[in-house]
Design a protein around this nucleic acid. Structure first.
Length: 270
DNA sequence: TGGTATGTTCCAAA
DNA sequence: TTTTGGAACATACC
């Protein structure tokens, strides 16, 4: 379930519950998901209190009482859920890790596809150091976006998915942002005019804010609870009528990812 | 059965 | 050095 709005929704829900909790036990049965290792993460977090819960891009960041970090990325199918003690004795089918808190209650990590990751790190940059601008922060200004985009010369869609210019966009919201800014996904970043870049900057913020307000997009078993799926304009709408021009939404592959766009509103670059 | 899936990383080639 | 394309990771659904 993992783009910025879905991750923010998880953080919003968990923050009031887990901040202040002291970690009593940790287990994981899938060593590849835990970095640098299950033993080192366990040594780092046991007995530590969670001081803050934050988000950076698609990463969920636990600040611990010794000022080190535990960081979770949900991958394609990961979920983090809180369970009060005795609430459900039934373990989930795809439970991959669990944090037992001293005050009763536990945090469980459920991840069918095992693409999620859990880190223990003394510095945030060890995990998040290569991330681009944070799109819902005031530091995401049109000028900084222009400057960050200017360092690359790539097709827009793969560039926005790379996390290196803007952090947190994924396949759904890149398609939505490009549609709303009327840019074809394969447009070369270096060919954009300043007004086009400023419009793209504006719609990225708009789309992400709207999705956060709607608690993200829910369209299958992986992530329940959101309502943004009812307000998407191109993603998942191939073959249907464009809301703007009444043409037909197309689907193609760009950078190995399924890509939805309106050929009329987002004309292919020359 | 084969195609598809909200993500990231590594590698080879250009 | 930067960009691009392919494969890998692993599982579920239709």
């Amino acid at each position: 379930m993992p783009e910025l709005p879905e991750v923010q929704t998880v953080v919003n829900r968990l923050e009031p519950i887990v901040v202040g909790c002291k970690i009593k036990k940790f287990w994981s049965l899938w060593p590849r998901q835990v970095i640098p290792s299950i033993a080192l993460l366990e040594r780092g977090v046991l007995g530590k209190k969670i001081i803050e819960l934050n988000r950076r891009g698609k990463y969920i960041i636990f600040l611990l009482s010794d000022h080190a970090y535990m960081i979770v990325h949900l991958g394609m199918s990961g979920r983090l859920e809180w369970e009060n003690q005795g609430g459900s004795n039934l373990d989930h089918k795809h439970m991959r890790a669990c944090w037992q808190m001293q005050s009763k209650g536990r945090l469980v990590f459920i991840d069918p596809r095992k693409f999620g990751r859990i880190w223990y790190a003394s510095h945030l940059d060890q995990v998040c150091g290569r991330l681009g601008l944070e799109p819902l922060e005031s530091s995401f200004t049109p000028d900084r976006f222009v400057e960050s985009l200017g360092r690359h010369k790539r097709q827009l869609k793969p560039l926005l998915l790379s996390q290196s210019v803007v952090a947190g966009l994924g396949n759904i919201y890149v398609d939505e942002a490009l549609f709303r800014s009327r840019l074809h996904p394969t447009t070369c970043s270096s060919s954009l005019t300043k007004p086009q870049i400023k419009r793209l900057h504006r719609v990225i913020i708009q789309v992400l804010q709207e999705a956060v307000e709607r608690c993200g997009t829910s369209f299958d078993w992986a992530y329940p609870g959101g309502s943004m799926q009812h307000h998407l304009q191109v993603y998942g709408r191939s073959g249907k009528k464009c809301y703007r021009c009444k043409g037909v939404i197309s689907r193609t592959i760009v950078g190995q990812r399924s890509t939805h766009y309106c050929p009329h509103c987002q004309p292919e670059p020359a």
